[in-house]
């Protein structure tokens, strides 16, 4: 099974996969994190073999996907709703107000010191969360609580949301990952329930919000402790 997959990926790598097979692989790579991981590995091997490898961890794909999807949406909105241009100013004011409100509340509810902690100071700040987290890592997180990654989406450059199923039950678990960088700007929004923890993945700072329709807060705390361990 694994061998067949590798063989298919090997053909894709060399541009020798048929049109049908290419379509299948594109779908598989985009939906199955372990296949994407293998695809990434094969390409890293090739880059290393050709001595064109600079950064072993480099993966621009998530950032680019995010960037491609965001402006597209804006363009469509402008195209289809030109008659709504008169609402632009009030809309902007409302957005600014809401943004300010979220920003203020994030300081009220979360204990963010004005200076980054010592451990954060030692870490080079990632430019975006997307550069820190890739789907493979999201998949790995599920191993902490015997779950499985159902889907994920990028909310913004600084935020990713992943939905997991808990094996052996019909409970779900939603994880929201946020960037925390060395600057004083806290890029945190849309946390309304569940529990939130500060942690590090490797040497990178990370904030995670855990929430679920069915799991109790106690259970969420237990799961978060597993992350922290």
């Amino acid at each position: 099974m694994e061998s067949t997959l590798n063989q298919r990926l090997s053909l894709l790598l060399d541009g020798e996969a048929s049109e049908f097979e290419t379509r299948r692989l594109v779908e598989d790579i985009s939906t199955k994190p372990h296949i994407k991981k293998r695809w990434l590995e094969m390409n890293k091997h090739r880059s290393a073999l050709r001595r064109e490898l600079l950064l072993p961890h480099l993966d621009l794909s998530s950032k680019i996907q995010n960037e491609l999807q965001t402006p597209k949406h804006t363009a469509i909105t402008k195209h289809y709703y030109p008659h709504l241009s008169w609402v632009k100013m009030p809309y902007m004011r409302t957005c600014s107000f809401l943004f300010g409100l979220c920003f203020t509340f994030s300081f009220l509810f979360f204990d963010f010191s004005s200076q980054p902690s010592q451990s954060f100071l030692q870490t080079a700040a990632p430019k975006t969360l997307v550069s820190t987290i890739n789907p493979v890592i999201l998949d790995d997180f599920a191993k902490n609580f015997d779950g499985n990654l159902r889907n994920y989406k990028y909310i913004s450059n600084n935020q990713i949301e992943a939905n997991y199923g808990i094996n052996g039950s019909n409970a779900n678990l939603k994880l929201k990952f946020f960037l925390k960088d060395n600057s004083k700007n806290i890029k945190l929004s849309s946390v309304s329930d569940g529990i939130t923890i500060n942690m590090k993945k490797g040497d990178k700072p990370m904030i995670i919000n855990l929430s679920s329709d069915k799991l109790t807060n106690e259970r969420l705390i237990n799961i978060s402790n597993l992350f922290l361990e």
């Binding site: 894709l12 985009s30 680019i64 491609l68």
Partner: peptide, 11 residues
């Protein structure tokens, strides 16, 4: 497009 990004990003 993701396939192409992963394939050529390092290079």
């Amino acid at each position: 497009f993701d396939i192409l990004v992963i394939k050529y990003q390092d290079r």
